[in-house]
């Protein structure tokens, strides 16, 4: 039997969610650590989020480009700690503003969802 459905469509949905959260992680990482190259960002996200990027470190780069085009981050060539040529990313003023806004949004969402999960059936009686 052939699979009926639209595999491309399904995949797209998943990456959209992933990219949304990834962007926020990138912004937060740069906020905490200042200027950092792509590999460094990937490592940091890996360390904190566990396996989210383990399989697909590559997906980071489209997100970096998108953020740069939106003006949230800027980049320039520089030398890394072991003297390799690398592209360094840093947060811009807009990026900082966006991060603050998104952080607030996340906290609100998380709080609401948290309250929902905390509610037990008897509380509603």
């Amino acid at each position: 039997m052939l699979r009926v459905g639209n595999p491309i469509g399904d995949m797209k949905e998943k990456t959209d969610v992933l990219q949304g959260t990834l962007a926020l992680m990138v912004l937060k990482t740069l906020d905490v650590l200042g200027s950092l190259h792509g590999y460094g960002i990937a490592r940091r996200i890996e360390q904190i989020s566990g396996d989210l990027l383990t399989v697909n470190q590559g997906t980071l780069y489209p997100v970096l480009l998108k953020l740069e085009q939106e003006g949230s981050i800027a980049s320039e060539w520089g030398a890394s700690e072991n003297n390799r040529k690398a592209r360094f990313y840093r947060l811009t003023r807009d990026g900082r503003k966006q991060l603050r806004a998104e952080t607030r949004g996340w906290e609100q969402t998380a709080a609401i969802i948290g309250r929902f999960f905390a509610v037990k059936a008897e509380d509603l009686e």
Binding site: T54, V55, G58, T59, P62
Partner: peptide, 17 residues
């Protein structure tokens, strides 16, 4: 670990608008 380079490139190009 990096993942599929071509798929990533596709995503990268999409981002380029």
């Amino acid at each position: 670990k990096f993942g599929a380079v071509e798929a990533m490139k596709e995503g990268y190009r999409d981002e380029r608008r």
